[in-house]
Simulated scan of single mutants.
Amino acid sequence: MQLSVIILNYNVRYFLEACIRSVQAAITTLDAEIIVVDNNSPDDSCDMMRNTFPEIQLIANTENVGFAKANNQAVKVAKGQYVCILNPDTIVTEDTFIQLLKFAEKTENLGSIGCKLIDGSGAFLPESKRNIPTPMVSVKKILGNKNSGYYSELKENEIGKVAILVGAFMLMKKTVYDAVGGFDEDYFMYGEDIDLSYKIKKAGFQNYYYGKTSVIHYKGESTLKDKTYAKRFYGAMQLFYKKHFKRNFVYDVAVTLGARLIPLVSPSNKTTKKEIHSCFIVTNSSERFQQIQAVYHPKKCEQFETVDELLLQANHKNQTEIIFDTHFIDLKSSIQIFEKQLGYYKILPKNSTFILGSDSSKNRGEVLMLTKN
């Protein structure tokens, strides 16, 4: 088997379904499998998996064992030559895996590959490609220095060598994953991807960033930017520092203080309510148009059957929501429009009864249920 796509889920049932449907569309021409691990979600994620995707292997944990351990569980049973660690709040394009596997096959000494991640508004996520968070870099970042060197200088649409990738999307040979011992289970949540990337690099492999394919990472679904997040993130960075760098009193004190003080001053999330005056629905189905229109009633809705017409009308109307019916327009084309940042966006996944999207990488997204006509 060529590829195993591993999705770790916790309590994001609708985003998980949308993610799986995008992955299914992306592996139609590949010898591939999907493995979903659920970390004891309190929602109906497992019931949805059993009822909607009975053919997909589900590992249903009876407790939340954390990011590292759960992914390690799945890799142990994966049959693919390559494994892709994928967040449930992501949407891949139809050719994402095809492009990356083609690149992997011709690249020597390959470690892990990451790709261009954008949030639900189409904005590039700079953590897609990072440098090693040395003590000096960590201290600068903790102090809020924008020129800390935390992010790679590689341009977002380029392909090149990088040190650190993000755990929302990491593709590598299973032999590489096994050679470095997989994710370190000392980490519960956050920091595991930095640690794994660094272990791969220290083992003599080279990590790459591939900026020619874009993947949506809604991010707010799995990474709410609140004080709990800050505490866990800086705690993970403290663990990474202690494991991989020689002890230095000054840096040790600075990182320790940062890990303890930053959570105390981190602002809590406050969602700003957006104003939607109209919606543009990209579909060729009058039935699906009416279903979506009912959600937005009494706001004005317009139907578009060509991308050119949509782009002409949208043109940075920030109070417009654009909904992509993926029965009609493919995900790759939809994501290309996302990146133009013309307004707010939602997606209707194939064979689903809801639309979803997110307007910020810092807050939870929105799921709107469709009513039957």
Score class of each variant (00 low, 15 high):
Ile335Ser: 09
Arg247Ala: 15
Asp43Cys: 13
Tyr177Pro: 10
Gly220Leu: 02
Ser268Thr: 11
Asn363Trp: 06
Glu105Leu: 10
Ile355Ala: 08
Gly204Leu: 14
Gly167Trp: 11
Lys242Gln: 12
His327Lys: 14
Asn9Met: 10
Cys46Gln: 07
Leu261His: 04
Thr306Cys: 09
Ile323Cys: 00
Phe289Gln: 04
His244Leu: 11
Phe324Pro: 00
Pro135Phe: 01
Tyr234Cys: 04
Cys301Ile: 01
Thr353Asp: 15
Gly182Ala: 02
Phe124Arg: 01
Lys340Ser: 01
Met237His: 14
Ile59Asn: 02
Asp119Lys: 15
Lys243Gln: 12
Ile323Ala: 00
Asn373Met: 04
Gln336Val: 03
Leu165Gln: 03
Ile132Thr: 14
Lys174Arg: 14
Lys79Phe: 10
Gln99Val: 04
Lys155Trp: 02
Lys246His: 07
Tyr251Gly: 00
Glu185Ser: 09
Thr306Leu: 10
Ala104Arg: 03
Tyr190Pro: 00
Lys242Ala: 13
Gly258Trp: 07
Asn39Ile: 15
Ile20Arg: 04
Val215Met: 08
Gly120Trp: 11
Tyr10Ala: 05
Ile216Val: 15
Val36His: 05
Val23Cys: 07
Gln238Thr: 08
Val215Glu: 02
Gly120Cys: 12
Asn51Cys: 13
Gln238Asp: 11
Lys300Phe: 01
Glu94Val: 06
Lys79Asn: 14
Leu224Ile: 11
Val75Ile: 15
Asp47Ser: 11
Ala163Asp: 13
Gly258Met: 06
Pro126Leu: 01
Leu125Asn: 01
Asn315Arg: 12
Thr52Lys: 15
Gln313Tyr: 01
Glu33Gly: 06
Leu257Arg: 10
Ala259Val: 06
Thr28Trp: 04
Tyr218Leu: 06
Ile20Ser: 06
Gly357Glu: 00
Gly181His: 05
Thr371Ser: 08
Ile142Pro: 08
Lys173Ala: 13
Cys279Phe: 12
Phe249Glu: 07
Ser148Arg: 05
Ser266Met: 10
Thr256His: 13
Arg288Pro: 00
Asp119Ile: 15
Gln238Gly: 08
Ser148Met: 07
Tyr210Pro: 06
Thr371Lys: 15
Phe324Glu: 00
Ala25Tyr: 03
Glu105Ile: 03
Lys146Asp: 08
Glu105Asn: 11
Tyr208Leu: 06
Phe103Cys: 05
Val137Glu: 13
Leu100Gly: 03
Met136Asp: 12
Ala236Lys: 09
His244Gly: 07
Asp308Ser: 13
Thr271His: 09
Val307Ile: 15
Glu302Gln: 03
Leu154Ser: 02
Asn64Phe: 08
Tyr345Thr: 13
Lys161Trp: 02
Thr306Asp: 05
Phe97Glu: 10
Phe205Ala: 13
Arg364Ala: 06
